[in-house]
Amino acid sequence: MKRIWIAAAMVAALLTAATALAHARADRADGTAGLPKRALIGYLHASFANGSGYVRMADVPDAWDIINLAFGEPTSPTSGDIRFTRCPASECPDVESDEEFAAAIRAKQARGKKVLISIGGQNGQVQLTTTAARDAFVRSVSQIIDRYGLDGLDIDFEGHSLYLDQGDTDFRSPTTPVIVNLISALKTLKASYGDDFVLTMAPETFFVQVGHQFYGPGAWGGDARRGAYLPVIHALRDDLTVLHVQDYNSGPVMGLDGQYHMMGGADFHIAMTDMVKAGFTVGDTGHTFPGLREDQIAFGLPAAVGAGNGHTPPAQVHQALNCLVKGEECGSYTLRGGTSPNLRGLMTWSINWDAFHGWEFMNSHEPFLNALP
């Protein structure tokens, strides 16, 4: 009888282990391995101070679950050769050594945090116009990731990095080289590093939600950048960990209710995030962009008034989260995509600006996120 009990216990233990392994594999397959249900995501000025002061990696509070190192930038807009240069001591007197920086990254990772290299930013225009630039991008980004043992990559292409050529009207099958080559490069990096590779994106609303109303240059030669992130997001949707659109530095954007929404309040975050969850028709192309999984979605906002246009008071951010997660406090807006109980969280520009302003963003939002069901 005792032997039978032992055998049964061993079978039960094996089944438990197999179930845990299956769940772990499932987590890796959808790109969420190691992330908490709610994540606080921030950019760390690692290459510059930007008027907000330098924050050493070791001094970043543990409330931050994903730390995006800002920024890796190209040697020229079309080279694809990305370089990551630490902030010089002349600008950042408190900057740590490379060895201390790498050790602090490892310490963060040991506590379950993810550290990524963010490519682009306001000044880092990246246009992969050729396959040679694509290959240089893959090679140089890999070198940065390997040098510091990073967990992945954030794409923060702004300005004129992405655009659509005339006649490129189907986001499902793009033909514009800067888009085709970026998709290829990101797929190569993901395949090289495997399922645990964290891939995030931080497009502006002009490159995503504005694509609902206008896509690319159109027949009359409008701005070729409208909606230009959509083919990249769509092609990488099975590899994408988090999309956190910048709900700031934005003009009015038409939502799924046919109304224009203005940044700076709960309504904007609700409407813009609902578009990403529900999906939307793309311009006059006749195609529909399918929504993302809710666990792939966060939204971004400035950490303080001085960090960017569109700062939202904490109470308004919490109202938006209550609407998106629980369907409460939505005001006059009706969620087309339904509630998102597994919404990933919040992104901010930036950790440095939050430190400069006494950690208001972190102290306001991290406890609120963790208290959500």
Rank of each mutant, 00 (worst) to 15 (best):
D146I: 10
M201K: 00
D196Y: 10
P177L: 09
G159Q: 02
L186A: 00
I105F: 01
S118I: 14
A102R: 12
R111P: 07
L128C: 10
T188E: 14
I179L: 07
D165K: 06
T129L: 14
R147S: 05
I66T: 05
H160P: 05
A70E: 04
D135W: 01
V115K: 00
D170W: 04
T130G: 10
E73Y: 04
L150I: 00
G149W: 05
T175I: 12
D196P: 11
G124Y: 10
N123R: 11
P93F: 14
A191P: 01
V141M: 01
R86E: 06
A70V: 08
I183N: 05
S118V: 10
V180T: 13
S140K: 04
P74V: 08
P177D: 15
T78A: 13
K114D: 00
S142Q: 09
Q122W: 11
Q109I: 09
L162N: 03
F157I: 01
G80M: 13
D146M: 03
D94S: 15
A110H: 07
R106K: 13
D81E: 12
Q122G: 13
A89I: 12
G152R: 05
H160A: 13
F101I: 07
E158D: 01
A191L: 06
S76I: 07
R172I: 03
S184E: 08
N68D: 10
T169S: 04
E158P: 02
P174S: 12
S173K: 08
V126Q: 06
P77G: 07
S142D: 06
T175A: 11
K187D: 07
A191Q: 13
G72E: 09
E96T: 05
Q122A: 15
A132C: 06
F71C: 06
G149C: 03
D146C: 03
E99N: 11
Y193D: 04
T75C: 10
R147H: 14
Q127M: 15
Y148I: 00
D156K: 01
V138C: 09
E100I: 11
E91K: 08
C92V: 15
A107G: 09
L182K: 05
D196C: 12
L199T: 08
T188R: 12
T175Q: 06
L128Q: 03
N181L: 01
P88D: 11
K114T: 03
A185D: 02
D170L: 14
V115F: 00
E158N: 02
R86C: 04
S142P: 02
N181Q: 08
E91Q: 13
A107Q: 12
T169Q: 11
A133Y: 05
M201A: 05
R111V: 14
T85I: 13
I155S: 01
I155F: 01
V198N: 02
A132H: 12
Q127K: 12
F197P: 04
T75W: 10
S140A: 01
F84Y: 15
V95G: 15
E73S: 11
A110D: 14
V178E: 05
T130Y: 08
T169V: 13
P203W: 09
G159Y: 08
R83V: 15
D98G: 13
P93S: 09
Q125F: 15
L182H: 02
D195A: 13
T131Y: 06
P93L: 06
S97A: 11
I82A: 10
T130W: 12
